Amino acid sequence: MEARPERLNATVAWLFMLGSACFVLGSVPAYLDAVGGPVDGVTYVIGSIFFTSASFGQLVQAQTPAMTAVDADSQHRRAPVRLLGWAPHDRNWLAAALQFPGTLCFNVSTVAALTHNATAAEANRYVWRPDLYGSVLFLASSTYAVLAVSQRFLAFRPRSFPWRIAWLNLVGSVLFMASALASYVVPSTDAALNTRVAVAGTFLGALCFLVGAALMLPAWRRAVPTRPRGSTPHQFKE
């Protein structure tokens, strides 16, 4: 299988943007009121599919040097990609490898959420747990992404596109975690622990992911013209 590095990066960025946009839209109360619960739930499912597709593309990108070590000419030339890889000492790869199963967890939770009349125990088992696991994996992935673009975790590099992308994703992951925790269904009331926090965390977290994904496009354009042939750039995440 072959791909053009610039096109793969753009595809990953747009898939992440579409997935994030679906989560943003699905968490808007006015949208829920307008389309109803089932359509709102399907919106999340579609968004999770976009997330998973983008995450797999990013994993392929992270484990294929030919997709990142490019110059202004080779970025447009097709090159073989690695569908399977193992690079545990590469923080960029670790970030992508943790993120992908996280998106699969969101696939499970969003599909399970379409079930009607689920008990609190069923909702927590089939929706809340996968959502929590996905959020944990996203948080770990984003932490590795920050470490991949900075020598120190709290290094301040606001002019760097990769730094901004990594921190937007980390903030988004923290917000998704808050949403997941607040979505726990209390057995005694059959209601979420805190619906407002759950909705706000999803909306703001997805918004962070959306902006981070949009920055992948100018980040690539800035990096490629000044990148020496054969060098390895920062992995552009989400």
Rank of each mutant, 00 (worst) to 15 (best):
V45K: 02
F51H: 08
Q61A: 10
A120C: 06
L104C: 07
I49Y: 09
V28F: 09
P38S: 06
A96F: 03
V60H: 00
I49V: 14
G37L: 10
A79F: 03
F51P: 07
A112G: 13
A97L: 11
D33S: 09
L114F: 05
Q99F: 10
V28C: 15
G36E: 12
V60C: 05
R91S: 04
L104P: 08
V24I: 15
S27E: 11
Y31K: 08
D40Q: 11
N117P: 01
P65M: 12
F51R: 00
A96K: 00
N117K: 13
F51E: 04
V60F: 02
I46R: 04
L59N: 03
G37W: 04
L94F: 02
T52W: 07
V42D: 01
L25G: 06
S53R: 09
N107P: 04
G41D: 13
A54W: 05
L32S: 13
R82F: 03
V45L: 15
S74L: 08
V111T: 04
S109A: 11
F100K: 03
T68K: 11
Q75A: 07
A95M: 00
R77C: 05
W93N: 01
A79H: 13
T110I: 06
P80W: 07
A113I: 02
T43I: 01
L83C: 07
P38R: 13
I49P: 00
Q63G: 15
L84S: 04
D73T: 14
L84F: 10
A95Y: 00
V111C: 01
A113Y: 12
V111Y: 11
R77K: 13
A120R: 13
W93I: 04
A118F: 00
T110F: 15
A118G: 10
Q75M: 10
S53D: 09
T115A: 15
P80F: 08
G41S: 13
H89V: 12
A113T: 10
P101C: 15
A34D: 06
A34R: 05
P65E: 14
A95N: 00
H89P: 00
S27M: 12
V70P: 07
F106P: 09
V111F: 12
G57Q: 00
V60R: 05
A62R: 15
P101D: 03
T64P: 02
R77Y: 08
R82D: 15
P29H: 07
A96P: 02
A79P: 06
A97R: 06
L59T: 03
P88Y: 09
S53H: 02
L25P: 04
V111A: 12
S53N: 05
A96D: 13
A66Q: 14
A118C: 09
L114R: 14
L84T: 14
L114P: 05
A21Y: 04
T52H: 06
Q99T: 05
P29V: 09
F23V: 12
L83N: 04
A120N: 13
F56Q: 09
H116M: 12
A118E: 13
S53I: 15
D90H: 01
